[in-house]
Design a binder for these strands. Sequence first.
DNA 1: ACATGGTATATGCGTCACGCATATATGTTC
DNA 2: GAACATATATGCGTGACGCATATACCATGT
Lengths: 118, 118
Amino acid sequence: MGMDRERRTEPLPLRPVEFHILLSLAAGERHGYGIIQDAESRGEMLDVGTLYRALARMREQGFIGAASRKPASDTGDERRNYYRISPRGLEVARAEARRLAALAHEARLCGLLKGVAT
Amino acid sequence: MGMDRERRTEPLPLRPVEFHILLSLAAGERHGYGIIQDAESRGEMLDVGTLYRALARMREQGFIGAASRKPASDTGDERRNYYRISPRGLEVARAEARRLAALAHEARLCGLLKGVAT
DNA sequence: ACATGGTATATGCGTCACGCATATATGTTC
DNA sequence: GAACATATATGCGTGACGCATATACCATGT
């Protein structure tokens, strides 16, 4: 067997797209296209195919769930599917955030972040 | 066409294993197994197959090169292949480090790093 | 001398996740 | 109603992946 990181039993480390999704959802409920726009606002490009497949995968994993109701900010667009982060999703997002922060710290120690504010 | 991130013309963002390699080599010349041990000391697990294939790929890309001579720290083990980071490799490593630091900063803003020192 | 375990590099195998393209349809604006 | 942005979804080809295996050298112990 074997795939990308394939059917790995360990969910961590997260795939980049998975962390982008949880990062958006940690700030509040979002629909798929809104997650893409969030990533764009951070200067990150998410492929739509990669995103929607990751959303389906993460629902199966229990990291995210469908929002019970549309948020107040919704314009009434019936096409939108809103997602919320689950307690388990929040856990893995925090663990991944700590891992990334530690990696960035190591990068600073190696001199890769000279002139970049902390 | 498409592969993992496949034959993407853009080298950025780097794959996780690629950043781990450049992070190790930014601190000095290393051989393959030494890079694995470096990652372990950071709590990151690198698969040996993934590592050696990434090393070959990154040599072709010009991000790393073979060290001209064995470093003074070498014990005389003839099996070792030492690598050094190239100017281009240092560039992309810095860019990727900035991206990761920005991502960690966003994670902090979203409350995913509460109680974690800066 | 031989066994054991750590070090060191490399490749074979199966396949998933990926990037890219395309499809479909609704919302918005002019 | 044309044009474009929004929104979700799937088909396609394949490279990179995790895991196993192969090979061999080095160090230590008995």
